[in-house]
């Protein structure tokens, strides 16, 4: 298990206006490691997807809190956990299929696909009625100031 060399935790209300705030904060934390523009964009996109899932699916547009726990691990690996205490996912495998969505015509159903495309790994743990934790990991090629 890799050791954490830096971390932060925060939680925000599940309002859609906070989507940009969450990805900006995680982006600022990642920027400490001097990522490439592409790495930073990838990470912010994946965080935006996970936070949106909390709002749209986890809490179904009702008020709740989104918990973000980010750590820089040895080897310049960023790990970001995004958690809600919402309704949970009955079938995680199905939810992660490309183009699968329960949220109507205006959602593309690509949230997990995009997360998987832009991160090294995506792990989803969920329990119906209890909530969901999405863990994103991404290696940053830049050099972190110790």
């Amino acid at each position: 298990m890799k050791k954490s060399v830096n971390d932060f935790k925060m939680n925000v209300l599940s309002r859609s206006v906070n989507e940009s705030f969450c990805r900006a904060v995680v982006g600022a934390f990642a920027a400490l490691c001097d990522p490439t523009v592409e790495e930073l964009s990838d990470l912010k996109t994946a965080v935006s997807e996970a936070v949106t899932n909390c709002i749209v699916h986890g809490y179904r547009d009702r008020p709740g809190r989104i918990y973000i726990d980010a750590a820089l691990l040895e080897g310049n690996v960023l790990r970001v956990k995004i958690r809600d205490k919402g309704c949970g996912i009955e079938d995680v495998s199905r939810a992660m299929e490309p183009l699968f969505s329960t949220a109507g015509n205006e959602r593309s159903g690509l949230g997990f696909t995009v997360m998987e495309s832009f991160c090294d790994s995506v792990r989803v743990r969920s329990a119906p009625g209890k909530g969901t934790v999405v863990t994103l990991t991404k290696t940053i090629t830049g050099k972190c100031d110790e």
């Binding site: 996109t45 205006e106 959602r107």
Partner: peptide
């Protein structure tokens, strides 16, 4: 910036 909401 765009996430999959742009695709939607």
């Amino acid at each position: 910036f765009m996430d999959s909401s742009g695709v939607g």
